[in-house]
């Protein structure tokens, strides 16, 4: 029986990941560490496991791996502590809030010889994977450009405290799509030109940002990262990528797999998602890596490269010019 420990439920994805773990055979939640005792105890009760108020005690237990869903600025300390305790790691995105932190996390995990995977569930969306297969088969020809969006609602809480999150919508919603563009193209971003602002929610961090990217081989891309969807919008948000190829152009809108549900009341229309459970497939992939000792499908390096682009967007906006990576 593999034991997975949960480190913090600060990020809402922790609930989904824990629920996924509960459905897997031969896997159990070996314990929960959370420095919010009320939250940690409640989660431990909900998921029928042990609550640890002390991180050292938690990491000294017989768990095989951890899933880290803390505030972004705490990823570094938790990853390094877990690696030094010889635990394999699945870390929520973004990998960190600074490039230096990300590099140190990768180095420590390599030295400890533990798996360090970044949680990018979009990679496990069925239509996103289907398009990857078509691209690899050459059906789109050479990729010329990408057009992407990742727009959602304001998650509030620590997400809008830059000290804990590292930034707002741009860091939150850029890394996913940059990761997919890198995955599809096998290329790194070399130039970032961005406009970032805050005006949807009257908050201290950015909630709107657009950026133009250029990749090493000349592919160009536009990306829209925002918390611009209000609660009355039919869906939480969107994840869209369009790949413009020399043979054909294909668009994937992950949120298009839905029922249109109309009800009486203020929010008349809701989109009820019926696509595959990306979080479940992500967790299964991580468990498989831990079991087999294989290289993770999404590495710390992948987390680093997408973080670099998000941080460059802030720099581009601050300086009013393009940033070369």
């Amino acid at each position: 029986m593999m034991k997975i420990g949960m480190m913090s439920f600060a990020h809402m994805h922790a609930y989904s990941y824990a629920n996924c773990l509960m459905t897997l055979p031969d896997v159990e939640i070996g314990g929960i560490f959370d420095d919010d005792p009320d939250r940690g105890k409640k989660m431990a009760a909900d998921f029928k496991t042990t609550y640890y108020s002390d991180q050292t005690d938690f990491l000294a237990s017989d768990i095989d791996a951890v899933i880290i869903c803390s505030e972004n600025n705490r990823h570094k300390d938790m990853v390094i502590a877990a690696a030094k305790a010889n635990k394999h790691i699945l870390c929520e995105k973004p990998i960190a809030t600074t490039v230096a932190d990300a590099k140190e996390m990768i180095r420590v995990c390599q030295e400890a010889d533990v798996i360090f995977q970044i949680a990018y569930p979009v990679r496990f969306s069925a239509p996103i994977r289907a398009l990857k297969t078509r691209i690899d088969a050459g059906e789109l020809g050479d990729i010329v450009a990408f057009r992407t969006t990742n727009r959602g609602q304001n998650p509030d809480g620590w997400f809008i405290d830059a000290a804990q999150s590292g930034g707002g919508a741009v860091i939150d919603h850029t890394v996913h799509m940059v990761d997919i563009m890198r995955w599809y193209s096998g290329q790194e971003v070399t130039e970032v030109d961005a406009v970032v602002d805050s005006y949807f929610h009257n908050i201290a961090v950015d909630d709107a940002g657009i950026m133009t990217l250029e990749f090493a081989n000349g592919i160009i891309a536009s990306h829209d990262a925002s918390w611009s969807r209000f609660p009355e919008y039919p869906a939480w948000g969107d994840v869209v990528i369009e790949v413009i190829g020399t043979k054909q152009t294909v668009k994937v809108n992950v949120s298009n797999e839905h029922l249109r549900h109309f009800t009486r009341g203020e929010k008349s229309l809701s989109h009820v998602f019926v696509g595959n459970n990306k979080d479940f497939d992500l967790i299964v992939d991580f468990i498989d890596c831990v079991t087999s000792g294989a290289r993770p499908s999404i590495t710390g390096f992948d987390g680093l490269k997408s973080l670099e682009v998000a941080l460059a967007a802030y720099e581009s906006n601050r300086l009013g010019k393009k940033i070369q990576l």
């Binding site: 657009i210 160009i220 020399t246």
Partner: peptide, 22 residues
């Protein structure tokens, strides 16, 4: 306030232009 034009290479079979503006 600011505008920039990014285009695929002129030899590209599928021309694509992205304009970022504020």
């Amino acid at each position: 306030k600011r505008i920039d034009v990014k285009q695929t290479h002129s030899s590209s079979r599928v021309p694509y232009t992205i304009v970022i503006a504020s």
